[in-house]
Design a protein around this nucleic acid. Structure first.
Lengths: 194, 194
DNA sequence: ACGGTTACAGATTTCAGATTTTGTATTCTG
DNA sequence: CAGAATACAAAATCTGAAATCTGTAACCGT
C-alpha cells in the first residue's frame, strides 16, 4: 500500500525490492510492484522507462548499501597497505557471501544483471576496482608495494580473486576451506606485489 | 549406423559424441544414440547404467583428448619452471577457449557436468592440479620458486587463474584484452612464487 | 548364455491455446 | 496541467493434455 503523497522513485525502489524479496526475480512483475504501492503498473512507468531499468536501479541501491564499509577499509590509512589489502579482500568475500546467503532473491537478481552486462554491474566493478587501486597506490607510495601501474595491478588482483567475488561462482562460497583458500591466494599475491 | 560386430562401450561413446555435437546436450537423447548406432536404446543401457554416466564418460574422453599436450609442457624439464608455468597457463587458456569455440555443444555438456559436480569434472581438475603441482615442485627443487607446500600452492595458482579456465566464465574468454590480462596475473603470481 | 529386442511404467518434455505481462496511448480527475 | 487510471497491442509466460524419454524387465534368436 502506498504511504501517501505523490509517488516518487525512491518509494518505487523500496516496493520493488520488497516484491523481489518476496517472489524472486523470476516471478516478480511490475504489476506486483504497482499492487504493492496501491497504484496501477502504468504509474511505475512514469518513473522508470522499463522493467530492466527498474531492476537495474534496485540492484544499484542494494549494492551500494554495504559499499561504504568496504570503502572505509580501503581508505583507512591507519592500516599499512598490505594488511589493508588483505582485510579488504576478506571483507569483500564476507560481504558477498552474506548477501548471497541472507538475501538470495536479490542476489539472484544481481546475478541476472551480471550475465546481462548491465550498467549497474559494470559500475559496481568499476567502483571496487577504484577502491583496490587506491590501496595499491598507497602501498606503492610508501614503498610497501613495488611500483607499477596501479590500475592494471588492481585489475590483476581483482581477476586473481575472481573465485571469491564473482556472483556466478557463489555456489562454492559455502564450501568449508574457502577462507583458508583466500588466505593462501592473498599471501601469494602480497608476495608478488613485493 | 552400426559398423558391425558386437556393440562396445567405445563405439557407443563415439556415437554419443556425434549426437551431442549434432543436437547439443539439451536435445540429445539416449534414443538418438541408439538410432545413430542402428540399435535400440535399451542396448545402450547394457553398457552404461544411466544417461548421466554416459555423458560423464563422453566428457571424460573429450577432456582427455588434449590432456597430453598440456602434460607435455608440464613435464618438459628443458624449460625452466617459471617459464614453464607461464606456458602451461597460456596453453590451458588456449585449449579451453578452442574447445569452447570449436565444439560449443560438447563444451556445454561439460559445463553441465561441472555445475552438477560430476566425477569427470572433479577428476579433470585433480589432473590439472597434479600437473601444476609437478611444475611447482620442480621449481622449488631447483630454487627458482620459494619452498612451500606444492599441493597447496598449486591450488592457489589454479584458483587465482579461475577466470581463465572455469567453464562458467567462458562467456568472457572472447573479450580482447584477455591474453594480456593473463600475462599480468601470471607476472604477479610468478613474482609471488619468488 | 550372449547380444540384443520389445514392452512398459513413471518422469519429463513438448506444444498449442489461454492468460499474463510489458510498454504505450489515450482518458480521467482534482 | 500534473499525476494517475484505463485501454490496448504485442510479447512472454503459463497450463494441461499428448508425446517422448528414461530406465527396467521380460523376452527372442543364434
Amino acid at each position: 500500500m502506498r504511504a501517501n503523497g505523490p509517488l516518487d522513485a525512491e518509494t518505487i525502489l523500496s516496493a520493488t525490492e520488497d516484491v523481489l524479496r518476496r517472489y524472486g526475480p523470476a516471478k516478480a512483475t511490475v504489476v506486483d510492484v504497482g499492487k504493492e504501492l496501491g497504484v496501477s503498473h502504468a504509474a511505475v512507468y512514469k518513473h522508470f522507462p522499463s522493467k530492466a531499468a527498474l531492476r537495474d536501479a534496485v540492484s544499484r541501491r542494494w549494492l551500494n548499501r554495504d559499499r561504504d564499509a568496504l570503502a572505509a577499509i580501503a581508505s583507512d590509512t591507519e592500516i599499512p597497505p598490505p594488511r589493508r589489502l588483505r582485510s579488504w579482500l576478506v571483507a569483500l568475500l564476507a560481504a558477498k557471501r552474506a548477501k548471497a546467503h541472507d538475501e538470495p532473491e536479490l542476489f539472484a537478481a544481481y546475478q541476472l544483471l551480471v550475465t546481462g552486462n548491465s550498467a549497474a554491474a559494470i559500475d559496481h566493478v568499476a567502483d571496487l576496482l577504484g577502491q583496490l587501486e587506491a590501496v595499491l597506490a598507497d602501498g606503492m607510495a610508501d614503498g610497501s608495494f613495488r611500483r607499477a601501474d596501479p590500475a592494471e595491478t588492481a585489475r590483476a588482483v581483482f581477476t586473481a580473486t575472481t573465485r571469491f567475488h564473482h556472483p556466478g561462482l557463489a555456489g562454492s562460497w559455502t564450501q568449508p576451506g574457502i577462507e583458508h583458500e583466500l588466505d593462501v591466494v592473498c599471501a601469494l599475491l602480497l608476495d608478488g606485489l613485493r
